[in-house]
Amino acid sequence: MSGLERATELDDAAVVARARAGDLDAYEVLVAHYTAAAHRAAVLLGAGADADDVVQEALVKAYRGLSRYRGESGFRPWLLAIVANETRNLHRSRGRRDGVLLRAVRQEMPEPAPDPADTAEANERRQRLVDQLRRLDRRDREVLVCRYLLDLSEAATAVALGWPKGTVKSRTARALGRLREHLAEDEHLAGEEGTDD
């Protein structure tokens, strides 16, 4: 853990302690500091247009649950775990499949280079990646989103998804392997289509 991460955790611990004691201004500091990360997590986990509602509900639940916060892994992973649960609740309640996540990933990706050839190639690669992410099951997609799109550590991903750290490590490896296989199959099929002309 870097010095900055340790300092942030110490600062968070002090702010959380004040919020637990009823200091609403202290909780507002936490809200201001972590709303953007919570929103990004909600979008990437598939909340789509409902991300604001998911984040609002997660922040309310976090405030109500401050007495249960143990601080072992930091406030951010704890809050992101609540966001992940709220996003899952959203999926269950509206009965949709996880295609929403993939549309959100497309929206969150940075703008490609202005060169038209580079743009076309980058868009094609991005589309292939998104298509292959869609083929993964929900749990594989969730772990890859947390680890690589939200840039969470294994420990923070474990907290966010409610899994043991070993499960995060093994599922990440398997999910990356499956993604590579899907991408290789896609590349092979694209090569075969190119030779048919």
Rank of each mutant, 00 (worst) to 15 (best):
V100E: 07
V105W: 07
R106A: 12
M109E: 15
P114E: 14
P114L: 12
T119K: 11
T119L: 12
T119H: 11
A120E: 12
A120H: 13
E121G: 02
E121C: 02
A122N: 04
N123T: 13
Q127L: 14
R128V: 05
R128Y: 03
L129H: 05
D131T: 08
L133I: 01
R134Q: 10
L136K: 03
L136W: 01
R138C: 02
R139L: 01
D140K: 03
E142R: 11
E142V: 02
L144R: 02
L144W: 02
R147P: 03
Y148T: 07
L149Q: 08
L150D: 00
L150C: 06
L150Y: 00
A156N: 06
T157R: 02
A158S: 15
A160F: 05
A160M: 03
G162L: 08
G162D: 06
P164L: 14
K165M: 15
V168E: 00
K169M: 03
K169S: 07
R171T: 11
T172Q: 03
T172R: 11
T172G: 02
A173S: 07
R174D: 08
R174V: 08
R174W: 13
A175L: 07
L176I: 05
G177L: 10
R178Y: 05
E181C: 01
L183P: 06
A184P: 04
